[in-house]
Amino acid sequence: MLIGGMMMVEDWKHFLLPYQQAVDELKVKLRGMRKQFQDQSQHSPIEFVTGRVKPVESIQEKMVRRHVQEDRLAQDMQDIAGLRIMCQFVDDIYQVVDILRSRSDINIIEERDYISNVKPSGYRSYHIVIEYPVQLVTGEQKILAEIQVRTLAMNFWATVEHSLNYKYQGEFPVEMAERLKNAAEAAFQLDTEMSEIREEIQEAQTLFSHGRGKGFESATED
């Protein structure tokens, strides 16, 4: 039902239900991939997975800002369903992307590499838009979802930048914008340094996960 050209809450709940199902299913599948790597005693390129359905007010705001027509919402807004895959190392990101490309249960529509092609703000992440089939009681419905793959350092920067962007409504003071860009470069330098000692880190994590780090753990707690 439409009133004044805007969907009512009841309709939003019905409209967003398949998106929530898609997010829930994909979180289970992606987290399952991590467990499979661990079961084989291999390094998992996936550190953890989060997901959400965009809030109604955010959808409405973006519809106005991007001039998205209501009857084109499912086709033109790609991030109503959103998932985020966090990785330890930059190379892990591209391994995850390769894994997603090989899956038969998703269809990749678009890829945007903001790591090799960093945004002017300093933002880095790998974005993948997928088409995912959701099985409903009324039949199959294909849902668009966006998956962002990034390192923990990239995610920390992006979370801070998002909060500040909300405060300044996208109009950052020049000094703030420059500081954020410098912070993004520092975060990427951290990722680069961690990649240089990746083998040492993974060996230490393997030792610790097998219980040989218990003495160290208790020592740090005293």
Rank of each mutant, 00 (worst) to 15 (best):
I147S: 05
T159I: 00
V97A: 15
I106V: 14
F156Y: 02
Y126V: 02
H210N: 10
E25I: 08
R124M: 01
T151W: 03
M6P: 00
T206V: 13
A74P: 01
N182Q: 12
Q36E: 13
R84M: 03
Y114A: 06
L180G: 10
G4H: 02
I108T: 15
H67P: 00
Q69H: 12
H67K: 08
Y19H: 14
F172P: 01
L17R: 10
F188P: 02
P18C: 05
D24L: 03
I115D: 11
P55M: 00
Y132C: 12
Q69C: 02
V97W: 07
D98E: 11
L17W: 09
K13S: 09
Q205C: 11
V97M: 12
E70Y: 05
Y166P: 00
P45H: 01
D222L: 07
S104D: 15
I99E: 04
E110P: 05
H14G: 02
V118A: 03
A153T: 08
Q205N: 14
V129W: 09
R52L: 09
G213C: 06
L190H: 08
G5T: 14
R101Y: 04
I201Y: 13
D91R: 07
Q78G: 07
F89N: 11
R101V: 03
L16P: 02
I99N: 00
E171N: 11
Q38V: 13
D71Q: 13
E25H: 02
V64D: 05
L16S: 04
A22P: 07
K167N: 01
E47W: 07
M33N: 10
M86F: 12
L100Y: 04
I3F: 05
Q189L: 14
Q40P: 05
Q88C: 15
T151D: 04
G122A: 06
Q75A: 09
V118K: 02
Q38W: 12
E161C: 06
R101A: 06
S121A: 01
F156M: 04
Y168S: 03
F156T: 07
E25G: 00
P120D: 06
E25Y: 00
A186W: 10
D91W: 01
G211Q: 09
Q69S: 07
L190I: 15
R66P: 04
E185C: 09
K119Y: 07
M1E: 15
F172I: 02
P133W: 05
L16A: 05
R72Q: 15
S102G: 09
T159G: 00
E61T: 11
S121M: 00
T206G: 03
A184Y: 03
F172K: 00
F216M: 12
H162E: 15
T206K: 14
D39W: 03
Q189E: 13
I59N: 01
R65I: 13
G122C: 04
D11C: 04
M8E: 15
E193C: 05
Q88D: 15
E200G: 05
V53F: 06
R66I: 03
T192N: 11
H162K: 04
Q38N: 14
N117K: 10
R179M: 12
E185H: 13
S121W: 00
E131R: 14
I109F: 12
Q141R: 15
E70L: 11
M8N: 12
V64C: 03
Y94A: 09
F48P: 04
I93V: 15
L30C: 08
A22Q: 04
D105E: 11
A204V: 09
L144T: 14
G170S: 05
S104H: 14
Q135N: 10
D91S: 11
Y168I: 09
R103F: 02
